[in-house]
Design a protein around this nucleic acid. Structure first.
Length: 501
DNA sequence: TGGCAACTCAGAGCAACACC
DNA sequence: GGTGTTGCTCTGAGTTGCCA
């Protein structure tokens, strides 16, 4: 828009150039008058003419010498015709100037609008910034809440604080203290006397003696203590009633105004406590008494050396800590050196002890692991034995069925099993198992058969190849004997069948 | 980031008794 | 559960710097 406003006067200039040739001196006066009138019309606002090329305007008002010369030359011949055309040009120019003025006004309006848009955008950005700041404040608040530093005036926090104060008041012996029972008052009087009579009696024994003595005290002797108790009680009840009323009123006030917020706060507080508690539990993990203690730091060695002197100046523990801390910070490296060397030696010793400790611990852990693995092995074997047992039971059932069928077949005339037939010899494992079972039963009386079997199985796997070979040899011998028996059995069976035949 | 190392002392908690 | 008594035990406070 601004561009068009600027380009427009240039166009006007080009239009004005041919018009110059038609100007005449006669037309000069009315033009000046007209211009003055136009300026008066614009009245304070920038004149549209000023936006036009000033040279061109000057030429219109005050023509160049060349133009004047030309005009003079053709003065007489064109005097009548030029007057009317100049008026026409003037009107045209005035129209254009008006157009330009309007154009400029419009441009200014648009610029103003644009400024307003920019301003609103800036305001929007500012508002956003403020909102972001607010959010950050909120975030910080939430983070602070997570840390749970009691800086907020929430009702529950106030109440809990009051509760704490109450308990402290009671312990500390304030005016809200409960009255002592007659026995307690009497005890207070009698304690020193009983202690005098029984100097060797400790706290527990003294209490027992007093308890027994109280039972022998007459009603008349008890009377002053009971009276004191009654008066103490009356005073106490008055104070308690007053406190109770005040407390109830405060409670009501708090509850009415802040119950909702208080509950939220309370929940967060409980969660915070829970988290803190779990953290503490971790911290309170039991320590290994055999673990070497951490070595003393250079500063600690120094503070231990310095402490007696400061204690001589009757400084408190905390003051001593602060003083030694400050002294240590400002101490020169040369002065620190002996303490640091001592600390270094302590550390070396500690590291050596730690190495031994970790080694020992690792060994212990390894042993434990081995034991656990062995137990696991046994358990697996037991499980396998159970499985085998089940399979065996299934086989027995199957075999029983088969036997029944065989017997049925035998009845029908088929061959039956000869009881004189030699039994198959035991395998090397069975031979080993018999001996191992006998030994284990002596070692672990009362252990069930399944466990024994499992242990035997483990032992069998653990024995050396040589030992296994020994058992294999035994089994081989048994097999040889079985074979011979079988030969004899076959012979006798054959001869008996011949005799029968 | 929090626990731990040494030191000392105040303060809290616990023990038994009878009673409210 | 709190009230008195005594003496023992445990905890927190404060410091620095290492380490998991």
């Amino acid at each position: 828009m601004a561009e068009s406003a600027v380009s427009q006067p240039a166009a006007l200039n080009s239009d004005l150039v041919p018009a110059k040739k038609k100007r005449s001196n006669a037309a000069r006066k009315p033009l000046a008058q007209k211009n003055a009138a136009a300026d008066d019309e614009s009245n304070g606002t920038p004149s549209p003419g000023k936006a036009v090329d000033p040279v061109a305007v000057k030429e219109v008002i005050q023509p160049s010498p060349k133009a004047v010369k030309q005009t003079k030359a053709s003065k007489k011949t064109t005097k009548q015709t030029s007057a009317s055309s100049f008026e026409k040009d003037l009107l045209e120019m005035q129209e254009r100037l008006e157009k330009l003025r309007l154009e400029k006004e419009r441009t200014e309006e648009l610029l103003k609008e644009k400024d307003e848009i920019l301003k609103s955008k800036e305001e929007e950005l500012e508002a956003r910034g403020k909102k972001q700041e607010q959010l950050q404040v909120e975030l910080k608040k939430l983070q602070k809440l997570k840390e749970f530093k009691p800086t907020m005036n929430f009702p529950i926090a106030q109440q809990s604080k009051d509760k704490d104060n109450d308990s402290k008041k009671k312990k500390g012996g304030s005016e809200t203290k409960r009255p002592s029972a007659p026995y307690i008052l009497w005890c207070k009087d009698q304690w020193a006397e009983v202690k005098k009579e029984n100097p060797d009696a400790d706290f527990k024994e003294t209490s027992i003696i007093l308890g027994a003595k109280w039972k022998t005290v007459s009603a008349e002797e008890k009377k002053p203590y009971e009276e004191q108790y009654q008066s103490d009680k009356e005073a106490y009840l008055k104070i308690v009633a007053k406190e109770k009323r005040e407390k109830a009123a405060m409670k009501l006030f708090d509850e009415e105004n802040k119950q909702k917020t208080a509950m939220e706060f309370y929940e967060q507080y409980m969660q915070f406590l829970q988290e803190a508690e779990t953290g503490n539990k971790k911290a309170k993990k039991e320590k290994d008494p055999l673990k070497p203690k951490k070595p003393m730091l250079a500063y600690f060695i120094y503070s231990n050396e310095r402490r007696p002197a400061l204690m001589g100046q009757s400084k408190s523990v905390l003051e001593i800590s602060k003083i030694t801390g400050e002294e240590w910070k400002t101490m020169s490296e040369r002065k620190k050196k002996p303490y640091e060397e001592m600390a270094k030696k302590n550390k070396e010793k500690y590291l050596a002890e730690m190495e031994e400790y970790t080694k020992k611990k690792a060994e212990e852990e390894l042993n434990q692991k081995t034991e656990e693995e062995e137990m696991l092995k046994i358990q697996k074997q037991e499980a396998l034995q159970l499985l085998k047992k089940k399979e065996k039971t299934d086989n027995i059932i199957k075999k029983t069925k088969e036997d029944k069928q065989k017997k049925k077949q035998a009845k029908e005339g088929k061959a039956e099993v000869d009881p004189n037939k030699p039994k198959k010899p035991a395998s090397s494992y069975i031979l080993f198992s018999k001996e191992a079972r006998k030994n284990l039963q002596e070692e672990r009386p009362g252990v069930n058969n399944a466990t024994l079997s499992a242990l035997i199985s483990v032992k069998w796997k653990e024995i050396t190849d040589e030992e296994k070979q020994r058992w294999n040899d035994k089994a081989a011998q048994a097999m040889d004997a079985y074979k011979k028996e079988m030969e004899e059995y076959k012979k006798s069976a054959a001869s008996s069948s011949v005799n029968e035949g």
